[in-house]
């Protein structure tokens, strides 16, 4: 347990700290811009969203920090299993920090500008605890998703890396084409499925279904991450 906490501490103090500060600065800037726009345009709003900003940061940090941490931690004689557990703990803390940051700025924003949040729009709910838990779960999922994508890229050979980079640009139009052929049933079925999974419904939206789904997805993804990580080797040595 000692080494796991040390690794998590290392991640926060040497790798994550700057990004958390940058994210806070962007949230502050967003707050100022929202206030300025509303005042200058003489309108009541609404102004942009805090939760989208922290979600973007969670995904980017998942994508960026794995190789930096992996290289250093392995050189300290720590096994991949402990590194994995420490990274899970780090992303959990990170998601909690992002959720709190988002909530703090939301509360401040409400006093200055008529802020618009994804959570509020999707679920019609303005409760702070609900929003904190929901942003936490989404940030956790996106952080682990970023880590998973980066790890697939990391363990792949050059050809596979090119395929991973190009695949979304090929799959998107193919999917669009198939959807047209199927009279739009693919997208509408996907939308219905996602609506159920994230707890969004026009009659009875429930954010906690979304929270449970996001946490479950993060757990499943982290299982896949572990499978890839346990045989991952240091590159560029």
């Amino acid at each position: 347990m000692g080494n796991i906490l040390k690794v998590a501490k290392f991640n926060f103090i040497t790798l994550f700290n700057r990004q958390i500060l940058i994210c806070s600065a962007i949230l502050l800037l967003h707050l100022l811009i929202s206030a300025a726009v509303i005042r200058l345009a003489n309108t009541e709003g609404p102004a942009g969203s805090n939760d989208v900003i922290v979600m973007c940061f969670a995904l980017i940090m998942g994508l960026v920090y794995f190789p930096l941490s992996f290289k250093y931690i392995l050189s300290q004689g720590i096994s991949r299993k402990r590194f994995f557990l420490a990274m899970c703990l780090s992303f959990t803390f990170l998601a909690a920090i992002f959720a709190l940051l988002s909530a703090i700025f939301y509360v401040i924003n409400l006093k200055i500008a008529n802020v618009w949040m994804v959570y509020e729009t999707a679920y019609g709910d303005r409760s702070i605890p609900g929003m904190v838990v929901w942003v936490f779960s989404v940030s956790l999922f996106l952080g682990v998703l970023g880590w998973f994508i980066r790890l697939i890229y990391y363990v792949s050979g050059r050809n596979m890396q090119i395929f991973i980079a190009v695949a979304p640009f090929i799959l998107a139009p193919v999917l669009l084409f198939l959807n047209i052929l199927a009279d739009g049933t693919i997208f509408s079925a996907t939308g219905r499925f996602l609506g159920k999974v994230i707890g969004y419904s026009t009659t009875n939206p429930n954010p906690y279904i979304g929270v449970a789904s996001m946490v479950a997805a993060a757990v499943i993804l982290s299982g896949l991450v572990f499978l890839l990580l346990r045989r991952a080797q240091i590159k560029d040595q």
């Binding site: 080494n3 930096l68 050189s75 004689g77 720590i78 096994s79 299993k81 346990r230 560029d236 040595q237």
Partner: peptide, 21 residues
């Protein structure tokens, strides 16, 4: 994958393992 065994080794590698900052 053995922390106890690896805790006995310190290795200077040719490449950098530390964050540049």
């Amino acid at each position: 994958e053995n922390d106890r065994a690896q805790a006995k080794i310190s290795c200077m590698t040719e490449k950098n393992v530390h964050p540049w900052v």
